[in-house]
Design a protein around this nucleic acid. Sequence first.
DNA 1: CTGAAAGCGCTTACAG
DNA 2: CTGAAAGCGCTTACAG
Lengths: 351, 351
Amino acid sequence: MPGLRSIKGKRVTLADVAAHAGVDTSVVSRIVNDDPVLNVRPETRERVKAALKELGYRPNAAARSLRTSQTGTLGLFLPDFANPVYAEIITGAEVAAAEQGFVLVTGSSTVSGSSRRAYLDLLGQGRVDGLLLSGEAFTTDIRKELQEFDLPYLLINRRVRGLNRYIILDDERAARLAVDHLIGLGHTAIAHIAGPANADTARRRRAGYEQAMKAAGLGAKDISVIAADYTPEGGVRAMEQVLSSKRRPTAVVVANIASAIGALHAALAMGLKVPEELSIVAIHDSPLAAFLTPPLTTVRMPLHDLGYQAVQLLLESSRTKPLEHVVEGPTELIVRSSTGPVPSTTARRGR
Amino acid sequence: MPGLRSIKGKRVTLADVAAHAGVDTSVVSRIVNDDPVLNVRPETRERVKAALKELGYRPNAAARSLRTSQTGTLGLFLPDFANPVYAEIITGAEVAAAEQGFVLVTGSSTVSGSSRRAYLDLLGQGRVDGLLLSGEAFTTDIRKELQEFDLPYLLINRRVRGLNRYIILDDERAARLAVDHLIGLGHTAIAHIAGPANADTARRRRAGYEQAMKAAGLGAKDISVIAADYTPEGGVRAMEQVLSSKRRPTAVVVANIASAIGALHAALAMGLKVPEELSIVAIHDSPLAAFLTPPLTTVRMPLHDLGYQAVQLLLESSRTKPLEHVVEGPTELIVRSSTGPVPSTTARRGR
DNA sequence: CTGAAAGCGCTTACAG
DNA sequence: CTGAAAGCGCTTACAG
């Protein structure tokens, strides 16, 4: 019966389909949802399926959600879309969500900054089935809201005292990998440009750096840590500090790719040759790392897996139980050209 | 009456509030929604407001949406979260959405690649009040879906034949600004690394490049265009081509920041000095541009405004009328260190 | 000034 | 094997 197709202007409802197929709406509903208990004559089923197709039926999400108290939506909140680290996490989360028929509502601190409360309020209205939270703005002092919403949540890449549901990466291992690489190249004076003091990832990477230094038999005189924001500007300032210290290191492990870009720039701007006079390795890879000059040696972390598994865990977890998960994906060193053998003493004196 | 607060485990509904305040749900509803026609005794209003607050009432989005056929949600689809250009657009869109009490559902081509149809289907269920679309995957061959959904939509930064609702930037002007800057530095042999042939932005930037060249009295022998993807890899390949041509240009206008990073890298890798031997200017700025070596001269485009205005236009527009808008925000040259005076002939011969 | 009622489009336990 | 009915939580024209 062509020509009937899509009663223009009005959405097709279950009732339309039921009338068209000559059955009750409940039957159509069960067929749409593949109800396993449904026992229906094959010919009826066919008739309904034909009607569904012919009318172009799509279930109304609001009605379904009102009835079932489920939305098929997850909230994902992060500090900054411009940060490549988060871009990769979102993408992983998105893929996992799509696989499970979920859709992602996203928000960044840019907005929340001015009105976090108002923004979160929108989510308190039963718009989402769960919350994925990362970055300082969305994980600090949020306990009260989380309780009010009574929603399952998961902190991404960050642990916060009092919130025992999080998923993180093996940041210590990443830092160790970076240090070991430099030690293998003969470096002993290895500084660490760490992240901000309030970042959990920064603490873990710093711990990994110190572990690896000690494991290599290096002591206090070789260990040097300077905190910086996870931004290029932060990296610039930190590198300037590193290079102005009396006992200049021959290599630097930078805790984050954005600050590493700033750090590299500062070293070059001060006339240092990288890697001949200073080796730099960054934690986190980026599509851009290979196109810097020199191409940056990095430790790639499984950020995509982090986002992917975050969604999976959130959806399969009981809403209340603690959930403390470390992603097992590959954390690997990618050697490019910003790291090299330790400069000989004469060469160093030469500068 | 403290202690009554939040009947744990069950959401507070309008009925709860009404019972608590001793009025009908309709009165509460009108107060919640600031119904201007409502005429209620001040004391009643106070009583209801107190109950609202005490019980911590939040309207249920699904019920409201079912009743009003409005969702308070907008869909934003883009090619890639990792692209800094889109990051800025999202942020602008997010701010505008938040201002109007809307929330953003986002999706990228990463997911849609495998299952665009399935992903878009989720939106056909009345989940969003409008659609913001950008990138090839979400704007090509989408006419049928758009018609089915019967949703207001707006293409961002892209025009597509047959879809007369779009918002774009003044790409021609941006390219002209870049060329004029180089001409002011004495360059005449100015090549253009353009975007992919199927990108509308690429066509417009190329047109701007050619206009400016002609306006400066330059002809076919100075005009040279090579297409590239908007990626670092694309920029590398294009620059290699540019530099291997017989008549090597002294300056290059790159249509996109990502490919400019690749192009800069390729030039440096081939031993060229930038800007002494080759000037490079990119269209689109990026937080990273200042930290490349040398810092990249760019043309900043009002991407934030693009996202912001896209949401505003979408929300205030009638769903059917054509909507063809060019963002008026500032398009400005940011001179850093990748551009300089044209090299003297001897210097050029010297290489 | 306030209330009763209908209905948005679904799902699901229950009846037959 | 299929249908009738209730109800999720709202909003809004209407009545009084």
